[in-house]
């Protein structure tokens, strides 16, 4: 188990007219290898929650265990925050706004330097991180971050986090504000990072069609509490409740619902667009006596298919 959260509560501006209870008794266990999606509308407490996980917000009530580090409201013993932050890497919304160094190299090196590593180790990590996010090390290391495109800046910002080799990587709205191809690049980067860098990944997203493409577990925050915590495919059993909370459900489910309402029989377990297409093909074959092969359905229905090509190459095209 990577992270265990017990009875976590948090109140902003306590004892003032602006008092807001952001978290009300949150319990959650995050396991090693989870590809966890967190959804919830604005103000549901999800950002407050993740800021606890690397000690940006001090625990007021309840407790959190991150690997072997305990976070409580006790003044002593002080938790080893440096160690905590090397374990849990956090990529904020619009992380490119936080680039500040003169060169890409220095910016990515900032984190590892603060971990007190040797110069050689820092060099290795910076090089590895920059290449991992799909940028050519030699070409970009001496560039000023401000000369880069929006998508490139975001990748440099992510490189700065993964250079610390976190065991858990948290990304808050990682695709916000990017164009469709930029979004696809970041999504395939995240998948790549799960394999090559951080085995546990937590992503906050408002885009339910996007998050269902990669998360294997979904946690829904509502009114400061964990409303649902389900394997990705199971969550939408609660679709009625999700809609009542003002959350979106995947388009594939909406289409399946409408088809079913018109008397068309489709299989269960439709969540993603690929699921829907599979069931449509099966129903079509049955009715028309055709033999269309479901395995011919492409995983990514129509997008910038990076899967066949070397990812580094695709990025370098920019």
């Amino acid at each position: 188990m990577s992270i265990v959260v017990k009875n976590l509560q948090f109140t902003y501006s306590a004892n003032s007219p602006y008092e807001t209870r952001a978290l009300k008794d949150v319990n959650l266990t995050i396991n090693e290898g989870d590809f966890l999606g967190i959804v919830g509308h604005t103000g549901s407490g999800k950002s407050t929650f993740i800021q606890h996980l690397n000690g940006l917000i001090r625990v007021q009530e309840g407790e959190i265990e991150v690997f072997d580090i305990k976070l409580t409201n006790a003044k002593k013993p002080k938790p080893d925050l440096r160690k905590l932050r090397s374990h849990v890497g956090m990529v904020f919304q619009y992380p490119e706004y936080q680039l500040f160094e003169e060169t890409v190299y220095k910016d990515v090196a900032f984190g590892p330097k603060n971990l007190g590593l040797s110069q050689e180790e820092i060099n290795d990590r910076v090089k590895e991180a920059i290449e991992l996010v799909g940028l050519d090390y030699e070409k970009y290391k001496d560039r000023a971050p401000f000369e880069l495109s929006g998508g490139q800046k975001r990748r440099v910002a992510i490189a700065g986090i993964i250079a610390m080799k976190p065991k858990v990587l948290i990304l808050d709205e990682p695709t916000a504000g990017l164009d469709p191809s930029g979004k696809e690049q970041i999504l395939s980067l995240i998948k790549n990072l799960k394999e090559k860098c951080s085995p546990t990944i937590i992503v906050i997203s408002h885009d339910i069609d996007e998050i269902t493409r990669f998360a294997n577990r979904l946690v829904v925050f509502n009114d400061g509490k964990v409303a649902f915590d389900e394997p990705m495919k199971e969550l939408f059993k609660h679709q009625q409740e999700l809609v009542e909370m003002g959350l979106d459900i995947p388009l594939a489910i909406k289409i399946a619902n409408e088809l079913k309402a018109k008397g068309i029989k489709l299989g269960e377990n439709i969540v993603t667009m690929s699921d829907l297409l599979r069931e449509i093909v099966i129903a079509y074959n049955k009715k028309n006596g055709t033999n269309i092969d479901v395995s011919k359905i492409r995983k990514s229905v129509f997008n910038f298919d990076f899967s066949n090509s070397n990812q580094e190459e695709v990025f370098k095209d920019e």
């Binding site: 069609d209 388009l251 594939a252 289409i255 667009m273 829907l276 449509i280 359905i297 129509f302 997008n303």
Partner: peptide, 9 residues
């Protein structure tokens, strides 16, 4: 997204 689905079909 709905257009993507139609294209694939």
């Amino acid at each position: 997204l709905a257009t993507q689905a139609a294209i694939e079909l």
